[in-house]
Design a protein around this nucleic acid. Structure first.
Length: 599
RNA sequence: GUCCCGUUCGUCUAGGGGUCUAGGACGCCGGCCUUUCAAGCCGGCAACACGGGUUCGAUUCCCGUACGGGACGCCA
C-alpha cells in the first residue's frame, strides 16, 4: 500500500503544521461496517499522538484497527472513557462522540518536516472544510415526483443531523428538455415539503464556461481527446456489439488520431483506461468494486459544444465544495466514471451514498413516466407534508420500533449510513395512516388553512377559518386526508342539510321518538350554557324522563343536525354549530319527524 | 448479453452465529368500548427465496442457483 492510501481510503483530510503535527483533521472515516466523522479539532496532544473527537455511527466492528499510512488510528476511547467501546458487545445504533487517538507514524512526521511535498495530503492542498455540504440536483424535465422528493429529504435530513449546508443545483445541461415550468414545479414541491435548500437554486447552465475549460484542460493534458465519429457510426457499433452479445461500448477508435479535419463536428471524449477496478466505500452500499473494463470513453462535450452530465457534475461538485453526494442508486454506475474524472483533475472526490430506489407495486423503478406522480398531487389529495416526509423517511430507514416522527426528530435522528440497501415499495395505506396520526397531533391552528383549502376545492364559498379550526377536533379521527375531512365537514357549512338521507330517515324517524325529541328541543331552548357537557346533561334528563333509548334518540338528532346518520358526536356538532344554527336544524328536524310519522 | 446491487409476514421493517416459539408497524380478520362513523384498546392470521458448505449450532458467515432491480446515451 502506498503511503497515504490509508488516509485516502478513510477519506480523511489532514493539514500539517510546521512541526509535522496534524493541526486539523477532518472528513469521513470509512471503517469496516461503519462511518465516522471527525467532528471536532484537537482535544489533547502528546508527542506523536493527538486526541481528536470523532463522531461515530453505523456498525462498529469488534477489534477495529487501521494501521499503515500517514494517519494512523491508534485507538479509540468512548465518550465515557471506557477502554474499548467495541469490545463491549453490540452497538447497533448510535455510538456518538467517541474520542480517538490519531497519530502520525513518527518516521513519516520526520520526513514531512524535511520535505512536506512527500505528503500527498499536503501536496494536494485541498481546502479543508468542517462543514458538510450536500446538494440536491434534479433535472428540470418534469415535476418533482415522490422518488425525487425522497432523495431531497434524505439529503436534507442527513445534512441537518450533521449540521451542514444543503444546496439545490438545477441540472439543466439538457437544454432541449429543460423547462422553466419544471423548475418552478420542483421549487414549489420542495417548498411544500419544507425542504427548501440553504443555498441556491444554482443553475448548471450558468457554469458552462467552467465545464468547458475543465474539459479542454484534460485535452491539453492528454486525458481527453477529440472524437469525430458520428452519432450514427457509434450507434451502429453498439448495435453490432449487442448483436454479438458484447457489452455495447465505444471502442476508442479516435483516441490516437492526431489529425483534426477542419469543419468536421467532434465531441470531446474522456480517456478511460480499461485496466484494474475502481473501489470505493459508499455510505449506504458499503464497498463497491467496479471493473474498469466496463467503462468506455465517455463524452464530456457534445458536438454542439455543450457539456454533458458527468462532466458538469464533477466540475460543479468540486467547485461548490460538495462533501457528500446522496443520490439514487441508478447513479451507481456513473460513480466510477466520476471518480475517474476527479482523479484526472486531481481533485478530492466527495463521499457517496446511493439510496435504494423506490419501486411501484409492479416492482419496477418509480419514475416520471412510470407510476410516480408529482408530490404536489399529495397536497391536492389532502396529505400533510409532515406525513409524506415521515412516510418517505421510513422507507429504507428505521429507528427502533418508532413509526411516528416529527420533522425535528428526523432531523435529529436520521442518518444515511443507517439506510438499508434494498428497494422498497410505495404503500399508500401506510401513508394514509401516518397522515391521520399527524392530523391528530398537530395544532388545529396549523391544520385550519389546509381544511379551508380543501373546502374551497369542494365548492364551499368562503369557509370561515375560525369555524374550520373548531371543526378539526371533531373530524380528525375520522378522516385519512383533508380531502376526506372537507367532504365530511361540508354539512357544517350548509344553510340547510335537507333533504336528509332517505335511508337514515326511514331507519331512525320512528313514532316513539316524537315525544322525547320534542321534549329535548324544548329544553334546549332554555339551556343557559351552550356547550357539549351541558347539552348532554339535558339529553340525559330527557332520556330519564321519557325512557327513550339513548342510541335511538341520538340518531334522530344526528340526522336533523347533519342530514345523515353518520357524523361526529352530536354534542360536539351542536357546540360547533352554535345555539342558533343547531336549534334551527333540530326544530326543522322535529317538523320533518312529525310529518314522516304522520303525527 | 455484460457489469453492479438486492432477496425476513401482502407492504415497510427489527434482528448480523445459540436469547428466534423470528419482534414492531400498516393492511386484513375478530373482540371490547360506544349516540352513528371513526379513533382507542385487546387478540388473531401471516415471513427468514432455494441448494450446498463452514460450525456443536446458521435467519445471521461463505459459495452457487433462482428470482427481482439498476446501469450499459452526444438523458440526467
Amino acid at each position: 500500500m502506498r503511503r497515504g492510501d490509508a488516509a485516502r481510503r478513510l477519506g480523511l483530510e489532514a493539514v500539517f503544521d510546521a512541526g509535522g503535527h496534524v493541526s486539523q483533521l477532518l472528513g469521513e472515516m470509512a471503517i469496516p461496517h461503519g462511518e465516522g466523522m471527525v467532528r471536532q479539532g484537537l482535544v489533547a496532544s502528546q508527542p506523536g499522538r493527538q486526541l481528536f473527537q470523532i463522531r461515530f455511527h453505523g456498525r462498529p466492528h469488534q477489534g477495529f484497527h487501521v494501521d499503515g499510512g500517514i494517519v494512523q488510528i491508534l485507538g479509540l476511547l468512548s465518550a465515557h472513557g471506557r477502554r474499548d467501546p467495541f469490545q463491549a458487545g453490540r452497538h447497533r445504533h448510535k455510538t456518538d462522540n467517541i474520542r480517538g487517538w490519531i497519530g502520525i507514524a513518527p518516521e513519516l512526521a520526520a520526513r514531512d518536516r524535511h520535505d512536506p511535498r512527500h505528503s500527498p495530503l499536503i501536496r494536494r492542498k485541498v481546502p479543508v472544510s468542517m462543514t458538510m455540504r450536500t446538494r440536491f440536483a434534479p433535472s428540470p424535465t418534469g415535476f418533482l415526483h415522490i422518488g425525487g422528493a425522497r432523495t431531497a429529504l434524505f439529503n436534507h435530513l442527513h445534512t441537518r443531523r450533521h449540521g451542514g449546508t444543503t444546496l439545490l443545483r438545477v441540472e439543466d445541461t439538457d437544454r432541449e428538455r429543460s423547462t422553466e415550468a419544471a423548475t418552478q414545479a420542483i421549487l414549489e414541491g420542495l417548498a411544500w415539503l419544507g425542504l427548501s435548500p440553504d443555498e441556491g437554486p444554482y443553475f448548471q447552465s450558468d457554469f458552462t464556461q467552467r465545464h468547458l475549460d475543465a474539459a479542454w484542460r484534460l485535452v491539453e493534458e492528454g486525458k481527453a481527446y477529440r472524437c469525430t465519429c458520428s452519432k450514427e457510426e457509434v450507434d451502429a457499433l453498439r448495435e453490432e456489439q449487442r448483436a454479438s452479445k458484447d457489452k455495447p461500448r465505444y471502442d476508442g477508435r479516435c483516441r490516437d488520431r492526431t489529425d483534426h479535419p477542419e469543419g468536421t463536428p467532434f465531441v470531446l471524449r474522456f480517456r478511460l483506461d480499461a485496466v484494474g477496478e475502481t473501489v470505493w466505500h459508499d455510505m449506504i452500499q458499503g464497498t463497491i468494486r467496479y471493473p474498469n473494463d466496463e467503462m468506455d470513453d465517455l463524452i464530456l462535450v457534445r458536438s454542439d459544444g455543450s457539456p454533458t452530465y458527468n462532466l458538469a457534475v464533477v466540475v460543479d461538485d468540486h467547485a461548490m465544495g460538495i462533501t457528500h453526494v446522496i443520490r439514487g442508486s441508478d447513479h451507481l454506475s456513473n460513480t466510477p466514471r466520476q471518480l475517474a474524472l476527479f482523479r484526472a483533475f486531481g481533485w478530492e472526490p466527495p463521499i457517496y451514498g446511493h439510496m435504494p430506489l423506490l419501486h411501484g407495486t409492479d416492482g419496477a423503478k418509480l419514475s416520471k413516466r412510470h407510476g410516480a406522480v408529482s408530490v404536489l398531487q399529495y397536497r391536492e389529495e389532502g396529505f400533510l407534508p409532515e406525513a409524506v416526509n415521515n412516510y418517505l423517511a421510513r422507507l429504507g430507514w428505521s429507528h427502533g420500533d418508532q413509526e411516528f416522527f416529527t420533522m425535528e426528530e428526523l432531523e435529529r435522528l436520521f442518518d444515511v449510513t443507517e439506510v438499508g440497501k434494498s428497494a422498497s415499495v410505495f404503500n399508500a395505506s401506510k401513508l394514509e395512516w401516518l397522515n391521520t396520526q399527524h392530523m391528530k397531533s398537530l395544532d388545529p391552528a396549523r391544520l385550519a388553512p389546509e381544511l379551508v383549502y380543501h373546502l374551497k376545492a369542494l365548492g364551499v364559498v368562503q369557509p370561515d377559518p375560525a369555524l374550520a379550526a373548531a371543526i378539526i377536533p371533531t373530524l380528525r379521527d375520522r378522516a385519512k386526508t383533508f380531502r376526506e375531512m372537507a367532504d365530511k365537514a361540508r354539512f357544517y357549512f350548509m344553510e340547510s342539510v335537507e333533504p336528509y338521507l332517505p335511508k337514515a330517515v326511514d331507519k331512525h324517524f320512528q313514532p316513539e321518538m316524537v315525544e322525547p325529541f320534542t321534549q329535548w328541543v324544548e329544553r334546549l331552548a332554555a339551556v343557559p350554557l351552550w356547550e357539549p357537557a351541558a347539552l348532554e346533561a339535558e339529553f340525559n334528563a330527557v332520556l330519564e324522563a321519557t325512557g327513550a333509548a339513548k342510541g335511538k334518540l341520538a340518531q334522530v338528532a344526528r340526522v336533523a343536525l347533519a342530514g345523515s346518520d353518520v357524523s361526529p358526536g352530536i354534542f360536539e356538532v351542536m357546540g360547533v354549530l352554535g345555539r342558533e344554527r343547531a336549534l334551527r336544524r333540530l326544530s326543522r328536524g322535529l317538523e320533518i319527524l312529525r310529518q314522516h310519522v304522520g303525527a
